[in-house]
Design a protein around this nucleic acid. Structure first.
Lengths: 353, 353
DNA sequence: ATGAAAGCGCTAACAC
DNA sequence: GTGTTAGCGCTTTCAT
């Protein structure tokens, strides 16, 4: 390939010279100002097409003090959730004519907020979408500089904090749905394979389970849970642990579909019929879950929409700030998930009760 | 939240005034030039910390004619492959100190290359990574402007073209591996569930299958294939179609793990034992495939590494061009996949032969 | 309707 | 060692 990176890019000046006008006139043409004579405009347009001129967005941003750019911070892109959310972000950003600067954290909880944010701000982003799940104390870095934060920022997937704009799936409600579904089928011994408890999402899903169990009067079963790592391997291992812990188990609610898949595998390996002998419910609704064997009942939610929502909120805050509404309050938004009843859950086998 | 977006960001001038030096001196300090008196440097540093000054990268790029930014064009982020690749890109870009501008195409084959590229170039990216799989004629848009392309560009996942730098998985080789594996187990009637044939990757995988079958003298079985959509649903549907087409089938090579999962489901639904009555091999090696039932034999490859590679190549070309090596040739690179033998494949049942 | 001058925030080149 | 001048590519005054 022949790159001609050395060749100077065409500037407004060259266009002006070539067209025999001032740079100002060229500027007017590319900004579609009305006050240019039709023939002058055409001449300039011709030269632009001819030279392949393209306005330098950086120079423009420098003077206009706006970059039309959103900084997106994410983590765990290799996993379905974060990447689907990013997918929503790109879609909505494109629609609203914003460009994205992407940063992916190597970890969920070991990073320097200061450095990341500073880097984004140095690039003059108009706003930031913090699409990193709340894990451990990874929100602490914001507390200090919160009041003087120079651009709007929207958080995804975190506990409600007064004054912090955030958008999350209602994980608690999802946990309730899953558990209620199993209870309503007639199950009593409903165990839970939770996600890592340092994750806010995992705690919420578990809270949904435990509250629902408690409300149904099954206080004694509240110890009937184990903590996984989100991985299928942990799901398989912990399904076994759960059975050892509660031999009467007839149903499992797993905090994500991967762990549910692991539980399914445990059942297969040990000749336990699903759903006849064991009902399993997952969380997330990944596309593959419909094709697990048996097809998985799961709490489905819309990562994509989460991302879209984030962009809309961020852009809304940016434009509001631009209009001088210096103080902008935006609360927490919770998106409701949906229970997808499929084949992996059924009433408990009368024999096994 | 209180955004103070209106407040002017601190500039080098304010720092200079506050520290009682010229802007030039401040510039020297932030660029870590040696020729600043230690106490002056300290004073400036103090003011910088005090004011929370952060150099404006845009202004810097404007003058240095370098943005240290890579444009990344992707598609289908909601799917595992593209997002894992992006994951590799972010990791490597971070390591090499480049920032990413992200664009996701809404489709794989309906888009205007001109617009996308122009938008990226207008933002002064130093290079472009075209991480969109080759589908249909979606490379055509580059042919015309190829010779005068102003920045280095690296393509991912496409057919080798002389002079176009590209990096791909060796899909053909992977297809061979899968098929040879099944043949070596003693299978003869090995069918193929292919991906959409407008995709280069799908064609290559199929070519691996057909060449291997042909080489083994099974020319008569070359019609024993069907074309899926990559989805699990299509895999299930087409497994059935394949059986109707070739009743003697004892093994299926599916062009991705999702379709293999669908085939697995077809087997379950119809009481076909895997692998005793039917061997199934997938492609991609998604993490879940290890936990399918039975665990899936698959051709695994490293999307992440693909992304890393792309960044290294792009940055290499950028730096080469900077050093005045105006003409830079970089060929096609093929990354070899690995066969992961698991439980879904075994010698054919003697009875069913 | 068009142009000249100033400046966005920064750095390279030269002075002192 | 430090300041001055000029200018990156563009737009915003303010003239004409």
């Amino acid at each position: 390939m022949t790159t001609t990176a050395g060749q100077k890019r065409v500037t407004i000046k060259q266009v002006a010279r070539e067209a025999g006008v001032s740079t100002q006139t060229v500027s007017r043409v590319i900004n579609e100002r009305p006050d240019v004579a039709p023939d002058t405009r055409q001449r300039v347009l011709d030269v632009i097409a001819d030279l392949g001129y393209r306005p330098n967005v950086l120079a423009r941003s420098l003077i206009s003090q706006r970059s039309h750019t959103l900084g997106v911070v994410t983590a765990g892109l290799a996993y379905t959730g974060p990447s689907r959310t990013l997918n929503g972000i790109t879609t909505q950003a494109e629609a609203m004519d914003y460009t994205l600067l992407l940063k992916e954290l190597p970890d969920f909880d070991h990073f320097d907020v200061e450095t990341i944010v500073d880097d984004l701000l140095a690039r003059q982003v108009d706003g930031i979408i913090w699409a990193v799940q709340e894990v451990g104390d990874n929100r602490d870095g914001f507390e200090e500089r919160w009041d003087s934060f120079p651009v709007p920022i929207v958080f995804l997937t975190m506990e409600e904090r007064t004054g912090w704009p955030s958008i999350s799936i209602d994980n608690y409600s999802g946990g309730c749905m899953a558990t209620e579904h199993l209870l309503s089928l007639g199950h009593i011994h409903v165990g839970h394979i939770a996600g890592p408890q340092s994750w806010w999402e995992a705690r919420e899903r578990k809270r949904g389970w435990s509250q629902t169990m408690q409300a149904a009067g099954h206080d004694l079963l509240l110890s009937c849970w184990v903590e996984g790592t989100w991985s299928s391997a942990s799901g398989e291992r912990l399904a076994q642990a759960l059975f050892e812990q509660c031999p009467d188990l007839t149903a499992i609610f797993a905090a994500n579909d991967q762990m549910a898949l692991g539980a399914l595998q445990y059942a297969h390996r040990n000749g336990i019929q699903v759903p006849q002998e064991l009902s399993i419910v997952g969380f997330d609704g990944i596309p593959e879950s419909l094709h697990f064997w048996p097809p998985l009942t799961t709490v489905s939610h819309d990562h994509h929409e989460l991302g879209c929502h984030a962009v809309r909120t961020a852009v809304g805050m940016i434009e509001a700030a631009l209009k001088g509404e210096a103080i902008h309050r935006s609360g927490s938004i919770l998106i409701e998930p949906t229970l997808m009843v499929r084949t992996s859950s059924s009433p408990p086998n009368p024999v096994s009760i």
